[in-house]
């Protein structure tokens, strides 16, 4: 039980859907995994070799429900898309990972500006839980040196000093921090 006055959402982690019979959905997954293989040969192994994702996408609003075939034209994707996309990439590499749901504090100025940006893009703002708390998605990677909580939006390990107030390792229960 967290000591703060905010309840975490009951929704499962975000998932990009695959439209039945949609070749472009499968083409996009094929491109994603192939580009990841290319970057693993030529690119940066820091940040679990995921930094290339940000050569193609930037963090921003996503209109849900979203499908794989929406990605080719998407410039901005939210933390749920980034976490799902990275989970698929890491899974193809043989790296086991769990989805991670978090509730984190934010300032009133941040939530006001984010709400405005999401609304102007026509995207839902239910991830902004209150003026001072937001919902966030990430991953737990099971590496040779043990499990690592990794923020796939900021490309950094989740620091013990991060001000997380609720955490859920899907499909477990929410735990107050």
């Amino acid at each position: 039980m967290s000591g703060v006055d905010v309840r975490p959402p009951e929704l499962p982690p975000s998932e990009l859907v695959t439209h039945p019979g949609c070749a472009e959905c499968l083409d996009t997954v094929g491109w994603l995994l192939s580009v990841d293989r290319a970057h693993r040969r030529t690119g940066d192994v820091t940040a679990y070799g995921l930094s290339w994702v940000f050569d193609h996408f930037r963090w921003g609003p996503t209109r849900w429900p979203a499908a794989w075939c929406d990605l080719p034209t998407a410039e901005f994707v939210d933390c749920g898309v980034l976490a799902h996309l990275c989970a698929v990439v890491l899974g193809a590499r043989g790296v086991a990972c769990d989805r991670l749901q978090l509730v984190e504090p934010a300032t009133a100025a941040q939530t006001r500006l984010w709400r405005g940006r999401w609304e102007s893009a026509g995207s839902g703002t239910d991830w902004i839980l209150t003026d001072h708390f937001v919902y966030h998605e990430s991953l737990t990677l099971h590496t040779a040196s043990g499990p690592r909580d990794f923020d796939t939006t900021e490309l950094r390990e989740i620091d013990p000093h991060d001000e997380v107030v609720w955490i859920r390792r899907w499909p477990g229960d929410w735990v107050g921090v």
């Binding site: 499968l26 094929g30 491109w31 192939s34 293989r37 040969r41 030529t42």
Partner: peptide
């Protein structure tokens, strides 16, 4: 070698699709 191998990998995926 790294570039050529990656390019061929991407091309083969596109051809397959």
């Amino acid at each position: 070698v790294r570039e050529a191998t990656s390019a061929v990998d991407l091309a083969r995926t596109a051809f397959e699709r």
